[in-house]
Write a protein that binds this DNA or RNA. Structure first.
Lengths: 190, 190
DNA sequence: CCTACCGATCGGTAGG
DNA sequence: CCTACCGATCGGTAGG
């Protein structure tokens, strides 16, 4: 049986792991770093997780899960194809550049560290998110708002949005929301 | 003095390192893997490179250097803004998805493994490449071919193009060149 | 969750 | 470029 305290401790570990994996990368983060971040001994980690990789999977699943939840919640309130289009851009950049404590960045950049089995599991979660995007793009294309090659458009856009963590500075000129709107402009058919 | 044989050996090591770093990642590749790939003892690596990181820098510098050379060569033959635009897309995807033996992928995804000093050096090389892109986009915008927010457009496009290694399959429907043309279509103002 | 520890492996070096 | 090696560190475990 899993007690409430164990769940809390586990959640703390995932939060710490998100931050550390983002800052230092998964491979360069040691189990000792992780343990120290929550004030326990390194051996005690393995009471909560069987392996270090299990922590990575938990972080990545949390990242994509929260992103998908946010998107579907926001989409439920959007009416027109244009509103929905704005929503997918904004939620993505808001989450990635604004509120993300690391889980989402880790999701994007640590795929090579996963075992095949774990990868398969996470791909399913990622696909659910991309399906939501696809649907919004298809509606937008039907309304003449964007180019009709929506599958490639989705890939181009998601790549371009993912890449923002490499250059976006929070102190800069644009907020994530403004940036989202400007990026949408670039592919909108007038 | 550096003899011809030493240069050759060094080049072999860089080639092997490109492949291994791409396949396994820099952190997961050991000096023993690298030595074995060229048939030497692990200690002997350090006759050619002072540290493992120096090998990473060499790989990344080779990746961005070759890409920039190719681009400038191809641009010299392009006349119109539209031709130049096609060229930057094609050279990028051709190199990344077609001929790259790993150096370019490593360049894109191993930044976090670099020391600050090495990073600064490589950023200069990368900026030279991006300046070429910027110039082509500016000309295209002046000719009314693309959106005028060319700085953001450059970032969106380079991100989207970089990301193709995550999903492109060589056996698939489109060649790198065809893919380049289709992607360009997505941001072309009609 | 801690204590105490292990076997494996890591990047790198000295001396030839 | 090889031989022989080193100190440090790694993920993980047994027993409580």
């Amino acid at each position: 049986m899993t007690t409430q305290e164990e769940k809390t401790r586990r959640a703390e570990l995932i939060t710490a792991a998100s931050r550390l994996f983002k800052e230092q990368g998964y491979e360069r983060t040691t189990v000792r770093d992780l343990a120290q971040a929550v004030g326990m001994q390194s051996g005690s980690l393995f009471y909560h997780f069987r392996t270090k990789e299990e922590m990575l999977v938990a972080v990545m699943a949390a990242g994509i899960g929260e992103l998908t939840d946010r998107l579907e919640e926001a989409l439920a309130e959007a009416k027109t194809p244009l509103e929905k289009l704005k929503t997918v851009f904004r939620v993505h950049l808001d989450t990635l550049l604004g509120d993300d404590k690391g889980a989402l960045s880790v999701l994007l950049y640590e795929w090579p560290s996963l075992s095949d089995k774990a990868r398969t599991e996470l791909i399913k979660l990622r696909d659910a998110y991309e399906r939501d995007w696809q649907q919004v793009l298809d509606e937008a294309a039907a309304a003449g708002l964007v180019h009709s090659d929506t599958r490639l458009l989705r890939k181009l856009l998601l790549g371009g949005l993912h890449w923002t963590i490499q250059w976006y500075k929070a102190d800069g000129s644009s907020s994530p929301k403004e940036l989202a709107d400007r990026m949408l402009e670039l592919v909108l058919k007038k």
